[in-house]
Every structure is written in structure tokens, then in C-alpha cells.
Computed example of a mutant assay.
Amino acid sequence: IGFSVSSVVSGVFISRYSTGAIIPIFSGLLLAIALVLLFVKTGSAPAKAVTLKEMQIGRVFRDKKFLIFLCYVFFMQLAHRGSFTFYPLLIKQLGGDTSLVGYASALMFVSEAVIMFLSKRMLKKTKPEILVMISSFAFVLWHFFFSICQTPGQVVLACLMDGPSFALFTIGTLYYMDSIAPPDIRTTYQTVAYSIYFGLSGIVGNMASGWLIENLGYQPMYWIGMTVTLTSTIVFFFVRRVAGAKAAGAALEK
């Protein structure tokens, strides 16, 4: 809700004045928050810093199940990061102004809030990895909607897909990590997964998307994103089925 309100206000303010004009306002707000935090007493001892050795990253990369999932989410987010980064430029290209970017962001955050509110109920009925695969089909629809948008308003409405796609993906991934990771290094699993699907895929995806837009245009970028997302999901589904069948066969032999 906070993101939604600030996005709308920021978009309108930037559209009326300039991007630079809002920087002092946010700087003042951040300074006020920092001053408040200085006077907050938690009553607990400072947390101990975790060393690289204690994170046991080597154990993480020996987990084949986790590595397969990492490859899957890397390619899925590879396609998404570029489409997310460049959607404000798409709005501008279609004749929209900065205020519409604020409204689009607000719709994204509202749709995310709805999915997160319903997430506990969904997790009771569906496995986390299935939620991730469902989110991938929502990503495909998001790419498709962006590819056919003819007006700025249509782009804004398409941003409602952020909840069923990115929010569902985030929740599913978090709980999937929790289900497969050894209890003593769960945070390491989450850290590695985050650095891959949000960091590395973001770097590669934004660079590739920028090149595609420059040389082919927006529509081909979204169609390629649809193809990559759908292909990675199908491959993961079959790999998961094969791995499950092998595990079941090994259990019967024992």
C-alpha cells in the first residue's frame, strides 16, 4: 500500500515538475526515518556476522534439485527483468507521460498485495514449486499483453499481471527453498537463489533486452520473452517428472 501511494504521488509530481525535484523530498523522508531509528531500542544483542565459511555455499551447489530449480528461475526471470525495466519507455513511446508510470506501479503493488494476502490459503492446497510454474504462465500472459498494447492505458492495465506473476513467483520460490534446504543453511539457499534470479538474471536480461529493443523493437522482445519463459517451464516440468519417477523407483527397490 505504501509503495502504491508513493508511486502515484511521485508520478504526478515528476510529471508536473521534474525527476530532480522529488529527490530532496525523498532525501528528507529518509533522513527523518534514520533519525527515528537512532532512538529505537530493541533490547536485544547485535546479531553475529556470518562468515562465508559458515554459509557453506559448497553444500548448496552440490544439491542437484536446487541447481535444476536455479536454472529454471534464472531463465524465467531473464525474460521478465527486461520487460519490467523497459515498460516505462513503452508507455512513453505510446504517448504516455510519467504520471502513468506511477499509476502502473501502483497497480503492480496492489495486485502483489492481493496475492500475498491469499498466499497462505494457496500454499495449503498447492505445492510451492507448482505455484512457481503457475506464475510462469502469468509471466507469459504479461509478455503477451505488453506485445499487443496500442495505448499507454493498456500498458497500465497489463501491469495488473504483476501480482499473479512476480508476487506468486516470489512466494512460491521462498517456500520451495524452505522445503528443500537443510534447516541450518536455509538462509544460504535463499541468498544464492535471490542473487541468481534477481541479480544475475537482471544483469543479463536487461542487457539483452536493451539490445533487442534497439535492433528489433519492443514487440519482438516480448515475444522472445514469452518463448524463453514457456520453454524453461516445460523443460523444468519434464525434468521434475523424470526426477520424481527415478526417486520413486529407487524407493521401491529399497
Rank of each mutant, 00 (worst) to 15 (best):
V36K: 08
F86W: 01
A250E: 05
I180P: 01
A181F: 09
F236N: 02
Y197V: 00
R121L: 10
Q93A: 11
M116A: 06
K65Q: 12
F26I: 13
A193D: 00
K246Q: 11
I91K: 00
L35I: 08
I171C: 02
A106H: 03
A208L: 14
R81Q: 10
F66V: 03
Y17Q: 13
S18Q: 08
A47H: 12
T227Q: 06
V140L: 09
I213T: 15
F3Q: 10
P164K: 02
M108T: 09
V110K: 00
M226D: 00
I22H: 11
F39V: 14
Q77V: 06
V40N: 13
A243N: 10
L37M: 13
D97G: 10
Y72D: 00
C159N: 11
Q190T: 04
A47E: 15
T151R: 05
L30Q: 14
P152I: 04
P220M: 00
G95Q: 06
I130N: 10
F169Y: 14
S135T: 00
A250R: 07
N206Q: 14
V155A: 06
L200F: 02
T173P: 01
F237M: 00
M177P: 02
L52Y: 07
S136L: 06
V110P: 04
F3V: 11
K41S: 11
I196C: 02
F84W: 04
L157F: 08
V239W: 05
N215M: 11
I68C: 12
Q56M: 08
S10Y: 09
K120T: 09
Y87D: 04
P88S: 06
T173Y: 00
G28P: 06
F146V: 14
T42G: 06
L160R: 06
T19K: 09
Q154F: 02
A248G: 09
H80K: 05
M122Q: 15
Y222E: 12
V132F: 13
M161S: 08
L70A: 04
P182A: 01
V228W: 00
Q219K: 04
Y218A: 09
H143E: 07
L30N: 14
V155W: 00
S195H: 14
A106Q: 05
L31H: 10
S136W: 12
Y176K: 09
T19Y: 13
Y176A: 06
V140P: 13
A181I: 07
Y189W: 01
G202Y: 03
I171Q: 03
P24S: 06
A250L: 00
L123Y: 05
A250V: 01
I22A: 14
K127I: 03
F144P: 04
V155Y: 03
G249T: 09
D97N: 12
I68A: 13
D162H: 15
A167Y: 14
A251P: 07
A106L: 05
Y197E: 08
Q154G: 12
Y222F: 15
T98L: 12
G58S: 15
S232D: 05
F13Q: 03
